[in-house]
Write a protein that binds this DNA or RNA. Structure first.
Lengths: 188, 188
DNA sequence: CTTTTGTAAGTAAATATTCACATACATGCA
DNA sequence: TGCATGTATGTGAATATTTACTTACAAAAG
């Protein structure tokens, strides 16, 4: 699974074939089928790992005692750092083309993204209640805008051939994002 | 090219093969090579059409005499309507997996997205100058957030099996977006 | 001695592309 | 009008390569 992730990181999901994987691992293709009944199962196992890793990171950030803005920043940082270290994670989570033809994978990706979105939505709800964020925010909408911003950043990062630093750009965007959603206390 | 767009709309870019296309058109595969020197050329020709269509729609919206907010809304509406009518356009513009291996296509998609982003950036700049939008907006950042929101909407739409109406949801999101970037004139 | 894990060599289907050859049609010329 | 020539467009079959997956058999490990 690690070698598979490496292939996807370096050359994309399309480059992950049983042939390239077996060569990289140093066994025959048949040996892979001793451990995974199909290529889809392999991908889903990897996705499940990503699911666990991502949600544990997010829930850790959520449960920590810090402002909602800080939680948001930590989640964005962690996520972009994950993408930077293992681009496969971005490639797999955003493999829209792939899940068009595979129902199981689609369901899995859907639940991953949905879970993440709900975590973030909760942060916006709390931030609203504590007057940290503006009262007129729609938590669901703004959480999707937040994720969309990350999505767009990653897309541009790929289009740039990974030329610039993703987490660094994320920080810049985070501040722009915060600027427009923060409640400015006029009485201070 | 029309039939190719239909295939991509219905079954995704991966389903577009010279074999499926020739069957749909009702000719042999060889005949296709009388008109396109390669599959890549076919895709790039289609992308060029999309480029022209999209940018002309955007520049039309930009040049019309209307508020910057209205321009933004019109662009979003047009774009989502295009995606709804021909999902191939979304599939092709967001075919990140595909352009990982093909440099020419990557460059083309990059220039399309970049052009769109610059148009939108300009709207935010003008909106700032006319006090329509908040003065603390970063036009580049906010334009990417705007596109990211659209990107995320389309992704969710696909994950939902196109169950809900994309332009309608777009309208809802547009209003949420406007709400947080609009300059509220406190003196009125 | 049974179970796990591997190999070597296959499978059928799909992929983009090419080939020699055929047809249709317009233009130019006798 | 009658015929030759050139060009655009098609066919049908073949190409080499890649794909996910299978099968018969062997070694190793507990």
């Amino acid at each position: 699974m690690q070698e598979a992730v490496e292939i996807v990181s370096e050359k994309g999901l399309n480059a992950l074939t049983m042939s390239t994987l077996s060569a990289k691992v140093g066994v025959t293709e048949g040996a892979l089928y001793r451990h995974f009944s199909s290529k889809n199962e392999l991908i889903m196992d990897i996705l499940n790992d990503i699911f666990l890793e991502t949600t544990s990171q997010i829930s850790e950030a959520t449960s920590r005692k810090q402002s909602n803005a800080a939680k948001l920043q930590q989640i964005m940082e962690n996520q972009l750092f994950l993408f930077k270290q293992r681009p496969a994670i971005a490639n797999l989570l955003f493999a829209e083309e792939y899940f068009l033809t595979n129902h199981d994978i689609k369901i899995l990706i859907y639940s991953i993204i949905n879970t993440i979105q709900l975590y973030i939505q909760e942060i916006f709800e709390n931030g609203k209640n504590s007057n940290e964020f503006k009262h007129n925010l729609n938590p669901r909408h703004i959480s999707m805008m937040f994720l969309g911003t990350i999505r767009m950043l990653v897309m541009n990062w790929k289009l740039s051939d990974y030329q610039w630093d993703l987490p660094a750009q994320g920080k810049v965007f985070y501040h722009s994002f915060l600027e427009i959603i923060e409640e400015k206390n006029l009485n201070q």
